[in-house]
Write a protein that binds this DNA or RNA. Structure first.
Length: 358
RNA sequence: UGGGGUGUAGCCAAGUUGGUAAGGCACAGGACUUUGACUCCUGCAUUCGCUGGUUCGAGUCCAGCCAUCCCAG
């Protein structure tokens, strides 16, 4: 049984209430706030994770709870993993998900290792998810939380058995309204703080500008073309577009136009009508399995191709090189290479992977 | 230069027997959201190529002019 816990605290309500629950359950808790980047880069005044104000909020909650609070600077690692992959992903025409990389390389890897190095038994985060051990299979399961509306298992599909064995999600049995209510009753400074949104290191939502600032060079303009190859206009740089995008194209037309595909080699963006965005088959690579050790033969599951959408029934078929082929019962809209795909079996996460570029 | 067509917001485009400017795209703002998107909501022509005229009243009728397109040449 875990006793000493490293509680990852962003300064928001969720992780604050999660810390409270651990304390109430008798764990020996130390609050940890991560510094992942300097706000100088992003000219940010609003509050997101990692700002000085957030560190102060986390500290204030820890003081109220009477627990220790430390700040760890993982800025270099964050830059080398999450941000680097984010930038290269966009540059090669993909649509990366930095939150998942951050979980994968920072919170559940570097942070957990640091915790263990310091003699802690486990880490905990404020994610809405649940972990349980299945006696039958002998495996740790990642399960959907009670609050289905806030289900964050999608961004946790890459957790390994080892990581799950040392991770606690105290909010798995709470609803978001309850969390705010608890924060209120305990006088937490962040009880009314808005839910986080957008990419944390691009708080103004302009991730393309962030990439150009980081790389020091603008994404070159190119042609918008239709499915027949006819030039429709000029685009403002490949990184500003993603599959399924409608707004920001600036192209007049009879109906709504969506980005259908991007060609990094030719520097073109193909646009067309909504119907062309639907596809039934996906190839997923970099697969991680949770509830089962391996995938043998076709397997039915419910599959999500983005954070906020209901899982859809599909058949998973293992391919020889470790990749998995997904065949949805119904065509799905706007799957983008680089995005995460997560497989579910009822309330349990079967596994997941990354949509491959074909 | 003859003959025909067209000129309504950034683009496309409705505008009836003249009655006081649809809609779509784009754009802007907001909602939603621990990724990118999608979606949804709101806003967006005191004005109809220009100048006169007829009317209580004209984008809608008349005249002239300008612009542009097509066919002749």
């Amino acid at each position: 049984m875990s006793r000493r816990v490293f509680m990852a605290m962003s300064g928001g309500v969720d992780s604050s209430v999660a810390a409270l629950r651990l304390v109430e359950e008798g764990y020996d808790v130390t609050g940890v706030t991560l510094r992942l980047f300097d706000n100088e880069d992003i000219g940010d005044k609003s509050s997101t994770c990692c700002s000085i104000a957030d560190v102060q909020d986390a500290r204030a909650v820890c003081m109220r709870l009477g627990i220790d609070h430390i700040v760890l600077n993982f800025g270099d690692l964050f830059r080398q993993t999450t941000i680097r992959r984010f930038i290269s992903g966009y540059q090669t025409g993909q649509t990366p998900n930095p939150c998942i990389d951050c979980n994968r390389f920072i919170k559940f890897d570097a942070l957990l290792k640091r915790a263990q190095l310091l003699g802690f038994d486990a880490i905990a985060t404020g994610h809405y998810a649940d972990v349980s051990f299945d006696e039958v299979s002998g495996r740790y399961l990642l399960k959907r939380p009670r609050d289905r509306d806030k289900d964050q298992t999608y961004v946790l599909y890459m957790l390994t058995q080892e990581q799950l064995a040392h991770t606690l999600f105290p909010l798995g049995t709470l609803d978001k309204p309850q969390v705010r209510d608890i924060a209120q009753k305990h006088g937490f400074v962040n009880a009314e703080k808005p839910d986080s949104q957008d990419i944390c290191f691009a708080p103004d939502g302009d991730y393309a500008a962030f990439i150009e600032r980081q790389t020091g060079k603008p994404s070159p303009e190119g042609d918008f073309i239709d499915t027949l190859g006819r030039v429709l206009g000029r685009h403002r740089g490949l990184i500003r577009y993603t599959i399924g995008q409608r707004r920001g194209l600036g192209l007049p037309s009879a109906g709504r136009l969506y980005v259908l595909s991007k060609d990094a080699a030719k520097n073109t963006v193909t646009v067309g009508e909504k119907d062309a965005l639907y596809a039934s088959r996906l190839i997923v690579r970099d697969v991680n399995l949770i509830s089962i050790g391996s995938l043998a033969g076709p397997h039915r599951a419910e599959v999500k191709i983005r954070y906020r959408h209901p899982a859809q029934p599909a058949t998973l078929t293992p391919l020889e090189d470790g990749a998995v082929q997904i065949d949805f019962d119904e065509p799905q809209r706007g799957a983008a290479a680089g995005q995460a795909v997560v497989f579910y079996n009822a309330d349990s996460v079967l596994g997941g992977g990354t949509i491959s570029q074909e």
